[in-house]
Design a protein around this nucleic acid. Sequence first.
DNA 1: GTTAGCACTCATTGAGCTTGAGTGCTAACC
DNA 2: GGTTAGCACTCAAGCTCAATGAGTGCTAAC
Lengths: 351, 351
Amino acid sequence: MDDLSQRKLQILQAIISDFIGSAEPVGSRTLSRKYDMGISPATIRNEMSDLEEMGFLTHPHTSAGRVPSDKAYRLYVNDLMPDYELDEKEKEIIDQKLNRSVVELDKTMEHAATLLSELTSLTAFAMTPAQTEAKLHYVNILPVDENTAVLMLVAESGKVSNTAVRLKHPCTPQQLEFLSKVMTHNYKGKCLNDILTMDLVKGLENDVEAMAMYQKDIQPSFLTTLESMLDTELYMDGLANIFDIPEYNDLTRAREFLDLLKRREHLSDVLLHRDTGTVITIGDENSDEALQDCSLITATYHVNGKLVGRLGVIGPTRMKYDKVKSIIEYMTDNISHAFRLAEGEGEQEDE
Amino acid sequence: MDDLSQRKLQILQAIISDFIGSAEPVGSRTLSRKYDMGISPATIRNEMSDLEEMGFLTHPHTSAGRVPSDKAYRLYVNDLMPDYELDEKEKEIIDQKLNRSVVELDKTMEHAATLLSELTSLTAFAMTPAQTEAKLHYVNILPVDENTAVLMLVAESGKVSNTAVRLKHPCTPQQLEFLSKVMTHNYKGKCLNDILTMDLVKGLENDVEAMAMYQKDIQPSFLTTLESMLDTELYMDGLANIFDIPEYNDLTRAREFLDLLKRREHLSDVLLHRDTGTVITIGDENSDEALQDCSLITATYHVNGKLVGRLGVIGPTRMKYDKVKSIIEYMTDNISHAFRLAEGEGEQEDE
DNA sequence: GTTAGCACTCATTGAGCTTGAGTGCTAACC
DNA sequence: GGTTAGCACTCAAGCTCAATGAGTGCTAAC
């Protein structure tokens, strides 16, 4: 049904490229002058008229040039868009900046968000994997002073999370160490998720005092710490970049955009429900109403083959899909690679 | 020289109050209508004219009302400003929201920034103390897998900092534990700052293998972790609040403001150099050029009597100095109080 | 099928006008 | 002498109106 002649495609492509670059509606004259396709403006106008009827172009007002519709961007992304090759310099920057802190996923992703926003001049976000399948490696409870301790959980992935705990009853280091050992023994190798629902620690039944201390002081912190380990972390950067985008050159729109991004849990939620791999959603393709004049590009990375995190940008529908997509994919490949090696086990390639 | 008659003071106060509320230049008529001071607009005009000559008022343009100058705000803050009493409800909110996480200073301050921005509708920041005097409590190196470990430092204050470390040479848990013990033995009770400049660990001289491992794998991370512990942390919230402030109802100004706040190290630096106690700097009193049409209010809190952190807001010179000041001071008092108890002198705590 | 020509549309810009809030000055008043 | 009424003056803001120009759609000729 979208049976577009070669010429129509060519014109559409030209309009899209031009508009992505300039943010100005594209007129028939400009087009015929800029792109030498041996066709007069009048002819272009006829073709444009057809394209508009087919839903690929719109008109801000009668006497303005044409603007690509979401549908046009979709066609562009699917079929027309050239493969953007990052140049060596860009690759080098990414390699260098990402590999700076490749031991801790959280830090890497924080850097990734910053880097991505710099490279694309858009708002970028990076999300760490949901740790639903993460297994606890061990529990440590460290004395600080007689009323305070630090509860520390280490996952098998190496992720660490700690919370300070106020002890209502003073406690000896030995007691705390004993408790750490019991807890580690009970929970080692178990999924964080499962631990949340187990309610008692075996091995304490006989020790009334330790039991009481555990239940009153430790358990509540333990549960919140577990939860904080399970949670995905969402890093964002480049919020101020929208000020450079003509589409948002207006206080209320800029404000709306920033308000949207302030609702982090909501955004996390949206992101978590996207498919694996590279996903581009354009304008009204976003089911979320607040996002319907934005485009999102996300790609996933994996750590140890299993957990899946996301990296992406959000911006106006008029964006450099080709370039942004390439950058994101190059970065996620880079991250996946780094954290596959990190695991150190031989593993089959899945890419 | 600033020998203002009672009537002039009264008029000035009225202008300032009015302008703080409305953000509109105040005219003589409005004034005489709103505040019944038994004086005609013409008389007020004469007084205003005097006040302008003395530098307390300015004129955006000939036919506009008067606007208070920075000098006027200074006078207001020093002498005219009423004491603002928080009502019980506000106090309750603060007590409640701040005491939620009173064990870890970092979390408390993060909440404080959010809360303060909500209460004042301005941009708020909260800074944790510089830990220059902090002493190391102990070092822990925990095995994750044979190539990875977590290096964990605990300060006497209970502050924890950890970094994942990639081990170039596989290492047994015993080796790591040994190293932890040696390091703890060497550094326990020492200032973080001093440790940074000590370069070798005693007790490893005879163990060539451990020594090599330490130097290659652990030491670099150890130093960066120490540094990250020393650093103050700056939390900010309410950036988007500027959109509600008429002064910033203009894209370039809003943008400048956000750009200013993006330079976090710079801001940290400015904040660190402020005096202890409550400090209000108004407009051109700020030595930093970028801040010269803002006002800053900061107050300090202390932890264990020594370390000093800051809480404050940044906003237009037209702000509710009385209210904001009271809120900040109430909050810092609250925090100081909470973290004095935390030290463990009197362990009475209400919940 | 393509193109030139022409009438038409409409956002944008800027000039000119009006309005109204506000001042400064002066002369009269208490 | 301090206070006030009156009046001329200023100037930002908002409005209308015409000019401009980028762009379209249609038609007729190539």
